[in-house]
Design a binder for these strands. Structure first.
Length: 483
RNA sequence: CGGGAUGUGGCGCAGCCUGGUAGCGCACCUGACUGGGGGUCAGGGGGCCGCCGGUUCGAAUCCGGCCAUCCCGACCA
């Protein structure tokens, strides 16, 4: 029995042995995604796509609730349009895919495959906006984008990826700033409530901010290998794009002014984030809110089980579905119950229900949690209240566990020696005072591989010197090695 | 984009050094017995050896190019 268990485990590399290998094994074995013939591109398989769809729904609800409407802009953008904003094009130029030919004809003007849509949306906003009465414009787009990446990994960094990009235009700087922060808050709420992924909010340093933005805000999560993952970004674009795309409006005081804009995005990268936040050596662990199947029912096959057990299993399924639970009844005859247990654990289903002759006799079902593996008998007539309660408990416990891990892996120091030792030995977030100088930031990166993930929103007072140089510290920064 | 490694049925690998008609485990198909933590037995199917070219009577094996993947670094959601 121990031998069998051992043989099974070799299908997934243990996390402690090689985390990145573990990650790839989970992606493949849980059938989340597969490789394509083109470098850096990925096929999102149905099970992985179902997770993304649940994320989309949860995000889209929040966007609608904050007054945003969905729209769609084209995949192709003329080169000249992208070139209008200098910092923007400089930021993206190395990552852009070009279309130079249509059919047999060479195009007169090259097209870029959108790496993001600020340019085309800015152009359209210029047409649509005349007066302060047209503002604010609050749009979101669900789309694919392409960035030519040198190093790629499924979900975490792919050449083509799926995301949403919100684009808003406002009358005042204050409103735009408010919007950028509001959406950052939406992202934090989404990550923590739906993905059970605790995040740190903050502002990006100058060198890490979005090309063309005034401010970039981000939420940063800590993965199971103690490296940080940028989980979402929200940009206050100021009037940078408005000026180059000539997005003007007549204000209440009759003057003509440029609009103030924001943009914000989250991507399929989050699927990778969920895997690396919660998974263990047996595979995926999905938070119930984004689990395609929240419950898997495994009937115990014995004798003429199709007459004795299956009807009970089907009744369980029907009741749970009626109660709003996403259920998979695994009635396959070709696999043993034990095989199914292992398989659905690998695929991260939060709760397993077993029903067999003994349970039917006792009017109960056996439940097993994926995260703790705790088993408990649930009285048959309490099913539709107990199961949703269990799912909610798992959702909360996963978040608490991830937050505990994050907090355990967060340290404070003002000593560079200690800083380096931490990044070397037991990394995670390190909160340290920083002088605000980009050269110092770059040196820290060279010397320790750690980057400023972001700068806490309410940093409070900082005294003393920068963690690395002697200059006075201007603020606290979250440092980490990152994806 | 540099350094290193890999590419052989779905997955994991052996074979390559020393060229001679491709093998193992798991998975898969059929049947029987089984079934509460990856069952047993019997029978069976499946491979352009990543792609293109070269050397050779003959290439999975030797040589060159390309593509892809992985790991470590420089750039990025």
């Amino acid at each position: 029995m121990a031998d069998k268990k051992g043989a099974f485990v070799t299908e997934i590399t243990p996390r402690s042995e090689e985390f990145s290998r573990w990650y790839l094994d989970v992606v493949r074995r849980a059938e989340l995604a597969d490789y394509s013939p083109v470098k850096g591109c990925m096929i999102i398989r149905p099970y992985g796509y179902a997770i993304w769809e649940l994320m989309q729904q949860a995000l889209d609800r929040r966007f609608k609730a904050t007054g945003h409407l969905n729209a769609y802009f084209p995949l192709f953008i003329p080169e000249s349009l992208l070139r209008k904003e200098a910092a923007h094009v400089d930021g993206f130029a190395p990552q852009v895919a070009w279309v130079t030919q249509g059919g047999d004809e060479t195009l007169e003007e090259r097209l870029v495959v959108r790496p993001t849509s600020e340019a085309i949306i800015g152009m359209m906003y210029a047409k649509w906006i005349q007066s302060w009465r047209d503002l604010p414009i609050l749009l979101n787009q669900w789309a694919n984008v392409v960035r030519w990446e040198k190093v790629t990994r499924p979900f975490l960094r792919t050449t083509e990826f799926l995301w949403q990009e919100g684009h808003t235009a406002h009358e005042t700087e204050h409103e735009a700033e408010e919007e950028a922060l509001r959406m950052l808050g939406v992202y934090k709420d989404f990550a923590e409530q739906e993905l059970a992924m605790p995040v740190l909010e903050g502002r990006k340093s100058e060198s890490e901010k979005f090309a063309g933005a005034v401010h970039t805000y981000s939420i940063e999560a800590l993965m199971g290998d103690a490296r940080a993952l940028q989980a979402g970004t929200s940009h206050h674009l100021g009037q940078n794009f408005a000026k180059v795309f000539d997005i003007t409006f007549q204000a209440r005081d009759k003057s003509v002014q440029h609009v103030w804009q924001t943009s914000w995005g989250m991507s399929t990268r989050l699927v990778g984030g969920v895997i690396m936040t919660h998974g263990d050596d047996s595979g995926l662990i999905l938070p119930p809110n984004v689990a395609p199947y929240q419950v898997v029912i495994v009937p115990i096959l014995r004798g003429n089980w199709q007459e004795t057990v299956l009807p009970h299993a089907e009744a369980l399924r029907d009741e749970l579905v009626a109660a709003g639970v996403r259920v998979m009844l695994d009635a396959r005859d070709e696999h043993s119950p034990g095989w199914k247990f292992a398989e659905w654990e690998l695929r991260g289903v939060p709760v397993r229900l077993e029903i067999g002759p003994k349970d039917i006799e006792k009017a109960q079902v056996m439940s097993a949690r994926r995260d703790t593996r705790a088993k408990a008998a649930i009285p048959r007539d309490e099913l539709t209240t107990r199961v949703p309660a269990l799912l909610a408990e798992i959702q909360a416990d996963l978040f608490a566990r991830a937050r505990q891990f994050r907090d355990d892996r967060t340290s404070h120091t003002a000593s560079y020696e200690e800083f380096k030792a931490t990044m070397d030995g037991r990394p995670g977030f390190v909160v340290a005072p920083w002088c605000g100088d980009a050269a110092c930031e770059a040196a820290i990166k060279t010397e320790t591989q750690a980057t400023i993930r972001n700068l806490p929103m309410q940093g409070g007072e900082v005294s003393g010197a920068c963690v690395r140089c002697d200059a006075p510290a201007r603020e606290q920064a979250y440092f980490a090695k990152s994806y």
